[in-house]
């Protein structure tokens, strides 16, 4: 679990997870597109994410595809969120969104 939190404690790595959340199963090249990061840096971040099991890869023909692996994040949710009144948290999140929308 330590590895998961360390891996998440970096904005670049969270950005990579966001990109996989938007579109799952990308190659290294696709993940690098439009990012202000060197290919080497992306490779290094992906290795850390993979070691934490937040990213999983498979070989698909000649390509290596990267997937967001939701299992560890789900386990965090189960351990720390589910038991604390998920319904109320949802309601508060909804209230926040509505208030922010009104102010916009």
């Amino acid at each position: 679990m330590d590895e998961v939190f360390k891996a998440l404690a970096d904005a670049s790595r969270r950005a990579l997870l966001d990109r996989l959340h938007a579109r799952n199963g990308q190659t290294l090249g696709e993940l690098c597109e439009g990012l202000d990061m060197s290919r080497q840096a992306v490779t290094k971040h992906l290795a850390i994410l993979e070691a934490a099991n937040l990213v999983a890869t498979i070989r698909h023909g000649r390509e290596k595809l990267h997937y967001l692996n939701p299992a560890p994040i789900h386990q965090i949710g189960e351990r720390w969120i589910r038991k604390f009144e998920r319904g109320r948290l949802d309601a508060l999140g909804d209230l926040k969104r509505r208030l922010e929308k009104r102010d916009a």
């Binding site: 799952n24 199963g25 099991n53 999983a56 698909h60 023909g61 595809l65 692996n69 299992a71």
Partner: peptide
């Protein structure tokens, strides 16, 4: 060959 839509890895 389409790429798989979902991949999950879990250690048990």
């Amino acid at each position: 060959m389409r790429k798989p839509e979902f991949l999950y890895v879990i250690y048990i």
